[in-house]
Design a protein around this nucleic acid. Sequence first.
DNA 1: GGCACATCTAGACAGTGTCAAGTTTAATGC
DNA 2: GCATTAAACTTGACACTGTCTAGATGTGCC
Lengths: 216, 216
Amino acid sequence: MILHMTASSPSASRASSKRYHHGDLGPALLKAAEEELVENGTESFSLRAVAKRAGVSHGAPAHHFGDAKGLLTALAAIGYDRLIAAQEARQAAAAKDTTSQLIAIGLGYVDFGTANPALFRLMFSSEKPDRTDEAFASSSLTAFGKLVDLVQAEVGADPYADTAAMKDVVASWAMVHGLADLILSGRIERLMGLSQRPQAETDAIITNILLRPIER
Amino acid sequence: MILHMTASSPSASRASSKRYHHGDLGPALLKAAEEELVENGTESFSLRAVAKRAGVSHGAPAHHFGDAKGLLTALAAIGYDRLIAAQEARQAAAAKDTTSQLIAIGLGYVDFGTANPALFRLMFSSEKPDRTDEAFASSSLTAFGKLVDLVQAEVGADPYADTAAMKDVVASWAMVHGLADLILSGRIERLMGLSQRPQAETDAIITNILLRPIER
DNA sequence: GGCACATCTAGACAGTGTCAAGTTTAATGC
DNA sequence: GCATTAAACTTGACACTGTCTAGATGTGCC
């Protein structure tokens, strides 16, 4: 029953060996959870299936994430980090003027949503993540802060002090969020066939739409 | 064990009597399902809890809706009808020019979302309803058709023939959908405190935002 | 080297959706 | 009015779920 595995070093790689201690189960569970999420969606998510996929018993996840909510909260926080990375990638490739940068974070938002629809749903349309969790709140506030800062630079007023500027923030946020949601749920495809078009053309259409809330 | 209930007529009222045949179980289950949805949300929805709430056994719903998906599909279709009603109420109260009517269906969309957040989530952010269901598809297309028709009247071009007009449709839809989603999920409250303001003021703010995708 | 602690397994529990079989009532045909 | 058919509903079974408990196993610290 006991395979002693005297082979070389127990150097924390060799992930699939049947050792009693996994060695790196936390990240492995997050990876398995995302795969499950992609395959089965947020709603029929199963913690036991995640454990099975990671090759551990059904009780193992509790030691790392408490309960299912804890695991999904950690995954959603990772989602926010990935959202921010997608936005920064677009920002780096865009012109440095404020308007271009504002559009860039919008394009990054849509990029993230279409590339990670299951995660998007988990982050924005699910009650399962605990929004008071520190990592979750921190990452989501960072993403929101980027928007606020760029709108402030664009309109020249602090949204927290100027209602008109805050309306610009809300309008920009609603537009990009609604657009991403409609695209990744497949509601736009039938109307505009974005997936059939070259990337530059899709970007141009999205840019055109994202400009509307802020241009005067 | 058998209460014959010879009282007067078996006239399909007397809903709570312990008869073997409920008499009107379909609608009663829909009502119970919505109550459960409001109390527990889309994600921890339980068919057995719905049956218990309606006072029937856990197997009873299958005879009316097949499975849980069937019940939630029927409920989502009702949701679309209610959305349309909310839009028509706003349209009736609004000026008859195209722009006012377009804003009216947007305000009705937001009205519906804030009044029925659980239903909104079910209709727009859940995989549970069967989107190929006839009643569901019909009602959702009716709602979408109102938007298309009004945008067509507003911009003077058929969105299905004119890409620019279709972009106007998508932009308007994304804006109102994103705005409703952000409001009913509580993300806007902290920023604008809409629920604290008088209705007319909230309407004015939403109107201002909803105008942006279409004004040139 | 021994001991405390973190990690993980295994079993139990109440709850879930769906299926099959049986019971009760309503509707239909004559 | 009465038998027969169909619809409505109950009941029990099944495999599955998340979480709790107790126990087994390995790691790291002193």
